[in-house]
Amino acid sequence: MSEAAPSHTPDRQHRITIDRARLLAAAEAGDISPAQAERLWARWAGDAIAPPRFSFVHVLYYFGGLLAIGAMTLFMTLGWELFGAAGTLLLSLGYAAGAVAAARHLLRRGLHIPAGILATIAVCLVPLAAWSVQSGLGLWPEGGPESYRDYHRLIDWRWLTLEFATLAAAVVMLWWLRLPFMVMPLAVTLWYLNMDVAHMLTRQSGFDWQLTRDVSLVFGLFTCAIAVWVDLRCRLASDPRDRQDFAFWLYLFGALMAWGGLSLHDSGSELGKLLYALINVALVFLGAAIGRRVFTVLGAIGVAGYLGYLSHKVFADSLLFPFALSLLGLGIVALGVWWQRHEARIHARLAAGLPAALRPLAEPR
Rank of each mutant, 00 (worst) to 15 (best):
A101L: 15
G30M: 10
D231S: 15
W175P: 01
H8E: 10
L327C: 12
G299K: 03
M184T: 09
C124S: 15
I121C: 12
L107N: 13
G70N: 13
L310C: 06
I49G: 02
V171S: 02
W209Y: 03
G94P: 00
G299C: 03
Q36Y: 10
P52I: 07
A102E: 04
V188W: 14
H152K: 06
A96Q: 05
Y148K: 03
P322Q: 07
D317L: 11
T161Y: 08
G287V: 03
S92N: 05
L174Q: 10
L327Y: 04
A115R: 06
L264Q: 11
V197L: 12
G116L: 08
C224P: 02
L162P: 00
A115G: 05
F253M: 04
L111Y: 13
L106Y: 06
P114D: 12
R213Q: 15
G116R: 07
L167R: 07
A304V: 08
L319Y: 09
S216I: 02
V123D: 05
A42T: 05
A21T: 15
L107M: 11
A357T: 11
A86D: 00
S318D: 14
L60V: 08
E28C: 06
D239E: 14
L358Q: 08
S55I: 02
D317I: 03
W259E: 06
Y61H: 14
L320N: 07
A289K: 09
A237P: 01
F83W: 12
L106M: 06
A71H: 02
T212N: 12
R203L: 08
R109D: 09
E3V: 14
L310V: 01
L82K: 12
G272S: 05
G84R: 01
W229N: 07
L361S: 05
L262K: 02
V133H: 01
A187V: 07
A103K: 01
L106W: 10
L128V: 00
G260Q: 12
F323N: 04
A26W: 15
M1G: 10
L60P: 00
V171A: 14
A227E: 09
Q13E: 13
W41I: 04
R349S: 06
A115I: 05
A130P: 02
S238V: 11
A103V: 01
S147M: 06
A334D: 10
P185T: 01
I301E: 07
G287Y: 04
V123T: 07
S318P: 04
A101G: 06
H347M: 05
R43I: 07
V333W: 11
F181T: 14
R12T: 12
A227H: 09
V133W: 00
Y251D: 15
A129S: 13
A26L: 15
L262F: 15
I113H: 14
L330W: 10
L78T: 11
R158V: 07
I226Y: 04
A27M: 08
A247Q: 03
W229K: 11
I346M: 02
G110I: 09
A237V: 02
L118F: 14
V123K: 01
